[in-house]
Design a protein around this nucleic acid. Structure first.
Lengths: 345, 345
DNA sequence: CTGTTAGCGCCTTCAT
DNA sequence: ATGAAGGCGCTAACAG
């Protein structure tokens, strides 16, 4: 039987309440007493039963997730993950709500952050747009002692406690490395389609890709980046133009969303097998395109992991506890059609 | 405040004990009473607090892991994961122990299973070797009501409740697909090094690889499989011979362990950059080789996930509960040097 | 068949 | 500064 608070109390010759005070280092204990208790804890090798502690506390954590609206399939998947976290809220003692904001709109996002602040939650998770007003709004939340984590896209220079997302420079590098090997000896330029250079994750991916795709010998021509604002029809038009302008195009890297447009343009032009397409995020559309061969490789961040990680970190920070950095690191998954996980994703 | 057993008792006009009986569908409740309680549960939208239930039960789960001994780095990593599960045993109410057996030795494994049975645990996780005596020993465990899951390598025809490992046919296919694209237009055969055809996972990987590497047009020559028994020096000798015999070798697929030998042979021959090497499992050795470029891609199964999944399933089965199949599916991770997760793995 | 009572390990008033 | 007692939500004897 592992030792309990009773055992420590007995060993140290004090009451349960004192043991509890020491355990949660609350004030009102003389140093000598504290030492006695700590010695007892050490000799008995006590480990606190977190479940029992939570039961006794019956504490709950009001958390707000701020997500971009629109038909971006990845973001909708992310929202679904937040929703299933809401379903678990009973057992996780958390009280999660969602605030939707227009995509790529810094001032709307800043307003939403202020609205979240008004509601006084224990923590806020936000898909950031990089802008000074957003940084400032995050600062106000932190002043009120509200924990903040950025989700998917980070916010440079802000006071956020943690970033729950992937290393996007590495993700871009991975895409570049795959592109280089997949196109092999074939000639012709490679195109890059981004969402917006306003968000950190897209800028980082571009940087990584550009560096890795031309590592080693061959210098392949990279076409100037075009921005499709994660909108399928805008992306479709852009890709259509690219295809028309470059009959010898060998590859397309789509580093943002709106992949439905990419897929449609490639298939309408009938050039899906000659062009190596690499994109991000596993959605029903991109999955189908990977299976059919229109897309050759997909990089993914596990939205479920990101949401769960954000919640863990937010809860820990709300309690003033620290987190295990390495454990919360989100992986960059590579999917080919052969190692596609089972549906639904 | 979410409803508790007290609320149900009040709503249904019965005592706590009766509510508990219904909740855990224990016998000794009239159908009418049971109905009343179930109606109350439904109308109040009751969700049981598992943590509190576990606390009250103060149940613990004795679990035995049977692992192959030897210097196979992946298996040692797996053992380390089991050990860190032992460290968590306090909080998870589990009591994990390890039984070591010689690798690829069916009769030793059968003996170990019988030994495990003698100890009467709630469940057993085993890295299987496929042989009738092993199947029989698993059958005996199941007869005693002991839950069994296979780990990493499955056991066809056995009564195991679950396989905690990857789809190895898909893993082989993934390797084949990468090999095909990475070697591109270059000529020359591809070699395959296995551990042993006695274990299911190696046979499955071979099957998947053979099918995928020659999908589409080009028919690349596959050399006959050689078996290195997951032993670094044996593997090194085999690869050395392969390199000598085939000056135009373009690729090597190592589908088992002993990759230290593969790496040494390639580097001693100075042919690491001209030959595309794809291997399995991220270990300190294979990681270094991926970074240096000797290995081009690594497929991995997350040993930590496998161990945690095995424990979850074993606990659930010991309680006669079901598991969510999809949730326990282990992914096939692809690592290039660009998306390598942070150390230590 | 059903109810009463006493915990599980911890935290939290309220006294002292 | 310390202790006693009650309760978190659930389960498990033991009585009726």
């Amino acid at each position: 039987m592992r030792p309990t608070v009773h055992d420590i109390a007995a060993e140290a010759g004090v009451s349960l309440a004192t043991v509890d005070r020491v355990l949660n280092n609350r004030p009102g204990v003389r140093t000598v007493t504290r030492d006695k208790v700590e010695r007892a804890i050490a000799t008995l090798g006590y480990i606190r039963d977190v479940a029992a502690a939570n039961l006794a506390k019956s504490r709950s954590y009001p958390l707000i997730f701020i997500l971009p609206e629109g038909e971006n399939a990845f973001m909708r998947g992310l929202e679904a993950e937040v929703q299933s976290a809401m379903a678990r809220s009973a057992v996780e003692r958390t009280d999660v709500s969602i605030l939707s904001v227009p995509a790529f709109d810094a001032s709307a996002l800043a307003d939403a952050l202020d609205e979240a602040r008004r509601r006084g939650p224990a923590g806020v998770a936000v898909v950031a747009v990089e802008a000074p007003e957003v940084v400032a709004a995050v600062g106000r939340l932190r002043e009120d002692g509200i924990a903040v984590v950025t989700l998917v896209s980070d916010l440079t220079g802000s006071e956020r406690e943690h970033f729950a997302g992937v290393d996007n420079i590495a993700a871009g590098r991975t895409a570049g490395s795959l592109m280089r090997r997949f196109v092999g000896g074939r000639d012709g330029p490679v195109a890059i389609v981004a969402g917006s250079m306003l968000v950190r994750d897209h800028r980082d991916r571009l940087e990584g890709f550009s560096a890795a795709v031309n590592e080693g010998a061959a210098k392949r021509q990279l076409l100037p980046v075009v921005e499709g604002h994660d909108d399928p029809s805008e992306v479709e038009n852009l890709v259509q133009d690219l295809l028309a302008a470059h009959p010898n195009l060998t590859g397309i890297y789509s580093l943002g969303a709106g992949n439905r447009g990419l897929i449609a343009a490639l298939e309408k032009a009938g050039r899906q097998s000659e062009i190596c397409a690499i994109a991000h995020e596993l959605t029903p559309y991109s999955r189908a395109a990977l299976v059919s061969g229109t897309i050759d490789a997909l990089l993914n961040q596990d939205a479920g992991h990101e949401v769960r990680s954000a919640i863990r970190v937010l809860k820990a920070r709300a309690d003033g506890l620290s987190m295990i950095e390495a454990q919360e690191r989100i992986r960059i998954d590579i999917f080919l059609k052969d190692n596609l996980p089972v549906e639904p994703v």
